[in-house]
Design a binder for these strands. Sequence first.
DNA 1: AACAAATTTGTAATGATTACAATTAATTTA
DNA 2: TAAATTAATTGTAATCATTACAAATTTGTT
Lengths: 140, 140
Amino acid sequence: MDMKEIAMLLKDHGIKPSHHRMKIYEYLVTHRNHPNVDMVYQELIQEIPTLSKTTLYNTLNLFLNKGLVQLITIAENEMHYDADVSMHGHFMCKECKKIYDIWFEDNDIVLPDLKDFAVDESHIYFRGTCLACLNKQLQD
Amino acid sequence: MDMKEIAMLLKDHGIKPSHHRMKIYEYLVTHRNHPNVDMVYQELIQEIPTLSKTTLYNTLNLFLNKGLVQLITIAENEMHYDADVSMHGHFMCKECKKIYDIWFEDNDIVLPDLKDFAVDESHIYFRGTCLACLNKQLQD
DNA sequence: AACAAATTTGTAATGATTACAATTAATTTA
DNA sequence: TAAATTAATTGTAATCATTACAAATTTGTT
């Protein structure tokens, strides 16, 4: 996804595509690693030495409000962000803290329609231990 | 659920049933309101004027580790707790912040078995607006 | 009662996030 | 094009949930 496409995507979501905003979205869409704020910051500060964390928070909240990214509240002490807003689940390894995408077969999961609620977001979270960390534990 | 039953339940989970611990669990099991730490504190401090928030945090973490309660990470800035550890979903209203239980019909939801992951916990979260808040909005 | 172990407490530290006012950059108007 | 207006970005300080830690209290044991 090149910068021209990113600019158009932001515009389509009612977001003026400033340089900072484009770089932040570019980070999310190329890494796809469900980063927390600091992961984005540590990477972008090298290209944009003046970048402020407040700008990051402002921008990510703007993206959230415009529906450009989704918020992942699977961790206990910090937010994570996902540029993929399509319906899929997330698994967090309690050992390495890594967050994995969980893709479902088409009919694997059908969430029920909720009466008495206007639902904006649906999330499916799993916690446990990932294969890499299970193997590491066997070596001890 | 009386105190004798609570004491037995704690013991069955390897937790020595001190008075504080029993009162904290009693709060969770009788209110069933998915409280945050402060909600428990504000109620119990009236009966136990010496209660410390550190004790609350310690106790809730102990309950979590022993599998007596489950952690709800649906809110963006604080943890919520649920004494009902059976599989059910949660809906959080963005307006009033209230958390509702979502019960599924038996075959309504079948979460897939994940290869390459040892899953300890599965959570289904919804966010949106509850009926009470939708009606309130119509009045304006 | 005396000792040891477990529980509870109070205070201070941590760390993610937000508030807010100042600065800088971009856009519009004259 | 320059001044004026608006929007975006920055830096610092505040907020607030949670944890660290050592002291005090309670409980259980010889």
